[in-house]
């Protein structure tokens, strides 16, 4: 990618039309539009989608918001479904049933429920087999479509409807699964973690790389959910910035086995700055719960150190 210009990018024709029924302030559609902007002009795409908010709100019969061909199959099989589509593409090309100058790219979207949990096996299989496709997880850290239940992507202590905060509970007991690293360890050509930055350059560059790297690629995009995280819809960019600046959500990529940091905060902000903005962590700020925040901070630090080590940046 050269000469990235946000203004130019924003003027590209949208491939996800307005009129879908996603919430105001939802990260999922921002993620989708950012990824699809990275498709080169003239290239066609088939979009896959696991069941979830994005699917039920963007393709409600008889309307679809998708400008490209689109397939939703079920919740747990977006990886396998797109494997079939991508294989069909190769089969049709081989038999001369598609014009030689037609290029299709294959991108599938799933929430963390469809990706980290119920669709994990299907995703792992598709990655291991090396289909030429991109799996994009829009990670909002819980099963938001069914009403904010915990997932393995939910951070520790988050208040969800299946890990409710109560007199005997401080929210979720476990740390979140580090899926980007797990997929990177499948030895795929390209895996990256990103979110929304002010200029959208990081997500754009990674999307373009993922789409145009031959073989299976994976993008993990933190995509906040105002309903589940309980923030003001207009604050989404602030939340994303704090996630990055606190090192809660580091931006990194693994390109053909080489780990690299995409951004290193000059001064790592304390995790409170990220947590304080969200209703799901409100209980952590009650007096007597300081140790919980300390525990959260220790986990963020441990993972950040681990990432620095993998990226050969350990001091």
């Amino acid at each position: 990618m050269s000469n990235y210009s946000l203004k130019e990018m924003m003027n590209k024709p949208e491939r996800l039309a307005p009129g879908h029924r996603m919430c105001a302030g939802c990260g999922a559609t921002i993620a989708v539009r950012a990824v699809l902007r990275a498709l080169h002009e003239g290239d066609r795409a088939v979009i896959g989608n696991a069941t979830g908010c994005l699917e039920v709100s963007s393709y409600m019969y008889p309307y679809t918001a998708w400008e490209d061909s689109y397939i939703h199959n079920a919740f747990e099989n977006a990886g396998a479904t797109l494997s079939g589509v991508e294989t069909a593409y190769r089969a049709l090309k081989k038999r001369g049933k598609l014009p030689a100058d037609e290029t299709f790219k294959f991108i599938t979207f799933g929430g963390d429920g469809g990706t980290y949990d119920i669709g994990f096996q299907s995703l792992s299989g598709a990655m291991e087999r090396g289909h030429d496709l991109v799996y994009v997880c829009y990670d909002n850290g819980a099963y938001m479509n069914t009403g904010i239940q915990r997932s393995s992507a939910t951070p520790m202590f988050a208040d969800t409807t299946t890990t409710p905060v109560g007199s005997q509970s401080s929210g979720k007991m476990q740390n979140r699964k580090d899926l980007a690293s797990i997929i990177a360890d499948h030895d795929v050509p390209y895996a990256a973690q990103t979110t929304f930055t002010t200029d959208f350059k990081d997500i754009h560059a990674k999307s373009e790389k993922a789409i145009y790297t031959e073989g299976a690629s994976f993008l993990n995009i933190m995509a906040p959910c105002p309903r589940g995280w309980r923030y003001e819809t207009s604050d989404i960019m602030k939340i994303c910035k704090l996630a990055v600046e606190t090192c809660y959500w580091p931006l990194f990529e693994v390109d053909h086995g080489k780990w690299s940091l995409s951004y290193e905060p000059k001064k790592k902000l304390p995790i409170e700055d990220f947590l304080r903005e969200q209703g799901r962590f409100r209980h952590l700020f009650k007096s007597g719960n300081e140790d919980l925040i300390a525990q959260f901070q220790a986990e963020v630090d441990r993972r950040w150190d681990d990432l620095l080590y993998k990226c050969n940046r350990y001091k």
Binding site: V46, G48, I71, N73, A74, E76, N77, G79, A80, T81, L82, S83, G84, V85, T87, A88, Y89, A91, L92, K97, Q121, S122, S124, G125, E128, R129
Partner: peptide, 20 residues
């Protein structure tokens, strides 16, 4: 396609058939 389960074999078959 040497899929990792039968759920995926039918899923991939649907994807391929839908693709043409």
């Amino acid at each position: 396609i040497p899929v990792e389960s039968e759920h995926s074999s039918m899923s991939a078959a649907i994807g391929a058939e839908a693709a043409g």
